[in-house]
Design a protein around this nucleic acid. Structure first.
Lengths: 220, 220
DNA sequence: CACTATTTGTTGCACACGCAACATAATATT
DNA sequence: AATATTATGTTGCGTGTGCAACAAATAGTG
């Protein structure tokens, strides 16, 4: 596990915690690591989760099977990705997804109860860890909320505008670049890529925006 | 505040905490109550939130203004509703919504920092409160995730099916009743009410489901 | 630079679904 | 029971956008 401490220090979960403090913290919260081989299941759909995890190495994906048993990939997971953060906080909840290793995967698991439990004061950054954890959980909700506010718009144009306005606000500039290519953007907004290109053209024609590739400018 | 303790005992936030324990807990977490008159703003869009709240009495709504300054109602709030739960956990985040009183509203505010802080052991249910809080935050994320998984489906039929299958699973029966009327269901799935009725008819004709009003049966 | 692969843009077609307008059923009110 | 009100169902029409197929631009490779 030692070799991963520098990596952990870079994660949101350990933000504000110095590398030399991490090892002690890990024993305090009863962290354990587990290895998975390719295609092995890390979380089974329908199971209950008591420990959340962080990927130390390797790649995974969260998947589920829809009504007609077709495989749907929900998210891709890489080093530093969190696993089961929402579920660990709701022990009654059944997991709506499975998490599967795509190659050799090493995961650091932390029992939710140990994270919550108030340990003695010899473990100074436990509270910071908890604070980071809650921040991650809350942020996931906010991110989903933002996406929904795009998805709810009735027309392509409004979906696109809602997204662009948000990024523009985040970067505090009418000129900005987006972190998604056309394909990813169309998936995020749940629209056809070609239809997205078409609508972007129309919006440029109508003087709403200017753009080239992933550089955009809002003309209000 | 005393008159609201019984109400508080019914909320998710105070689940598992006895009424007689609540008063002490409230002082421990530095809870304070605040009153708002009709149309007054409880949270301003764009502001940073350090205290989350629970509505003790009255009604409110969370709103925002879209690109063309049209008012959009996000959620309705009533007694027991939580305010700013996600935002309090992310102090950097600007509030994407405003919260407005619709009549005389009384809100119990709890500073996030006081909730997180580890107090002495004379306050036995502080940890339970924290656990409930995190559960609420996580649950909000899961609820949004569930809605997105409906919204992402390409066709009306699949949206409806995804929703119905989920409720059916939750109630562990092929025969079940849904908590939404047609209007609310169409808003949840972000589709036209009449189009929803039409598609439900088609699905009945095709032998997929049977239903009457809010009673449904999945015929696989 | 030549060549391939990837990303982005364009366009015609078809149809699913938004929309409006009305019909019918269920519920509430007197 | 009669009437008003609300919820749900039905249907015709128009169009926004999914879809497919291709073109153009950009990036990657040797």
């Amino acid at each position: 596990m030692k070799e991963h401490i520098e990596d952990l220090a870079q994660t949101k979960l350990f933000f504000g915690i110095e590398p030399y403090e991490i090892a002690g913290l890990l024993t305090c919260v009863h962290a354990r690591s587990a290895q998975y081989s390719k295609e092995e299941m890390i979380i089974q759909e329908g199971s209950h989760i008591s420990d959340f995890g962080i990927i130390l190495s390797g790649h995974g994906r969260s998947v589920k099977w829809d009504a007609s048993d077709k495989l749907i990939i929900i998210t891709l997971l890489e080093k530093g990705s969190e696993i089961g953060v929402l579920l660990a906080a709701n022990p009654e909840q059944e997991s709506p997804v499975s998490v599967q290793a795509q190659d050799e995967v090493s995961v650091l698991f932390i029992p939710y109860d140990a994270l919550i439990a108030r340990c003695d004061k010899t473990c100074p950054k436990h509270e910071m860890l908890l604070r980071n954890y809650i921040g991650i959980v809350a942020e996931k909700g906010l991110v989903l909320h933002e996406r929904i506010s795009c998805l709810l718009k009735p027309t392509l144009r409004e979906k696109v505008m809602t997204y662009l306005i948000r990024v523009s606000r985040e970067q505090r500039s009418q000129t900005f670049s987006i972190p998604l290519n056309r394909n990813a953007m169309s998936e995020y907004l749940n629209i056809e890529r070609s239809a997205l290109s078409r609508e972007l053209s129309n919006m440029k024609r109508d003087g709403l925006i200017d753009y080239h590739r992933n550089s955009f400018k809002l003309l209000v």
